Amino acid sequence: MAEIKQGSNKFYIGDDENNPQAQITFQPQGDNQINIDHTGVPDELGGQGIGSQLVKSVVDYARENNLKVVASCPFAKSVIEKNDEYQDVYAG
């Protein structure tokens, strides 16, 4: 599995934060909430669970920083809603 790195309001796979192979981005929403607004995994990396691992990275980040998560990204929203372990940080 490729290494997931933390960037500015994102987690990504690749050598360059500005030109990642795959990424998930989020934006601050008020004092204690972030919104996952995009998950991008190219077709050649599809089917490897990379998108789900990127979502997990944001969930872990939220826990470490006492943040709640909302997701305007349909993929991230689906992953979070289906995973009981993520409900502690999910703000719906």
Results as ranks from 00 to 15, higher is better:
residue 47 G to M: 11
residue 79 V to W: 07
residue 2 A to K: 04
residue 81 E to Y: 06
residue 74 P to Y: 09
residue 24 I to K: 05
residue 10 K to N: 04
residue 90 Y to A: 05
residue 33 Q to A: 01
residue 45 L to S: 12
residue 29 Q to E: 06
residue 61 Y to N: 10
residue 68 K to P: 08
residue 40 G to Y: 15
residue 86 Y to D: 03
residue 35 N to M: 05
residue 37 D to A: 07
residue 16 D to N: 06
residue 27 Q to N: 11
residue 30 G to W: 08
residue 16 D to C: 03
residue 62 A to F: 10
residue 38 H to N: 12
residue 74 P to Q: 12
residue 72 S to N: 10
residue 56 K to H: 14
residue 90 Y to S: 04
residue 19 N to E: 02
residue 91 A to D: 09
residue 46 G to S: 12
residue 21 Q to F: 04
residue 63 R to M: 06
residue 1 M to S: 01
residue 54 L to K: 09
residue 29 Q to S: 07
residue 77 K to A: 13
residue 17 E to P: 01
residue 71 A to S: 14
residue 75 F to V: 09
residue 6 Q to K: 06
residue 50 I to P: 00
residue 54 L to V: 15
residue 49 G to H: 13
residue 29 Q to I: 04
residue 77 K to D: 06
residue 32 N to L: 06
residue 69 V to N: 13
residue 70 V to M: 09
residue 58 V to S: 15
residue 85 E to W: 02
residue 82 K to L: 01
residue 40 G to Q: 15
residue 3 E to T: 11
residue 75 F to N: 14
residue 91 A to T: 10
residue 68 K to T: 14
residue 83 N to F: 02
residue 33 Q to G: 00
residue 51 G to K: 15
residue 9 N to Y: 05
residue 55 V to S: 10
residue 64 E to H: 04
residue 6 Q to C: 02
residue 79 V to N: 08
residue 88 D to S: 07
residue 85 E to A: 13
residue 18 N to C: 00
residue 43 D to Y: 14
residue 71 A to F: 06
residue 38 H to E: 09
residue 27 Q to C: 01
residue 86 Y to W: 07
residue 83 N to K: 10
residue 28 P to S: 05
residue 23 Q to A: 10
residue 66 N to R: 10
residue 81 E to K: 12
residue 48 Q to M: 13
residue 49 G to N: 12
residue 69 V to Q: 13
residue 40 G to T: 11
residue 57 S to M: 11
residue 62 A to G: 09
residue 81 E to D: 09
residue 36 I to C: 04
residue 37 D to N: 13
residue 14 G to I: 00
residue 4 I to E: 00
residue 34 I to C: 07
residue 6 Q to L: 03
residue 51 G to L: 14
residue 55 V to Y: 11
residue 35 N to K: 10
residue 50 I to Y: 15
residue 53 Q to D: 12
residue 41 V to H: 14
residue 51 G to S: 14
residue 9 N to P: 00
residue 18 N to Q: 08
residue 78 S to P: 04
residue 11 F to I: 09
residue 75 F to Q: 10
residue 88 D to W: 02
residue 32 N to Q: 08
residue 13 I to P: 03
residue 32 N to T: 14
residue 34 I to Y: 09
residue 5 K to C: 03
residue 43 D to N: 14
residue 82 K to E: 01
residue 68 K to W: 06
residue 53 Q to C: 10
residue 42 P to H: 05
residue 20 P to N: 00
residue 18 N to L: 01
residue 83 N to A: 11
residue 31 D to T: 09
residue 70 V to T: 15
residue 73 C to A: 09
residue 86 Y to S: 04
residue 24 I to L: 05
residue 18 N to T: 06
residue 23 Q to D: 12
residue 68 K to D: 02
residue 50 I to Q: 14
residue 7 G to Q: 01
residue 75 F to R: 12
residue 19 N to V: 07
residue 58 V to Q: 15
residue 9 N to G: 01
residue 78 S to I: 01
residue 16 D to R: 06
residue 81 E to C: 05
residue 39 T to S: 13
residue 20 P to L: 00
residue 55 V to D: 08
residue 21 Q to V: 04
residue 60 D to Q: 13
residue 26 F to K: 09
residue 65 N to Y: 09
residue 53 Q to V: 11
residue 76 A to V: 06
residue 34 I to M: 03
residue 61 Y to C: 10
residue 90 Y to L: 02
residue 55 V to R: 08
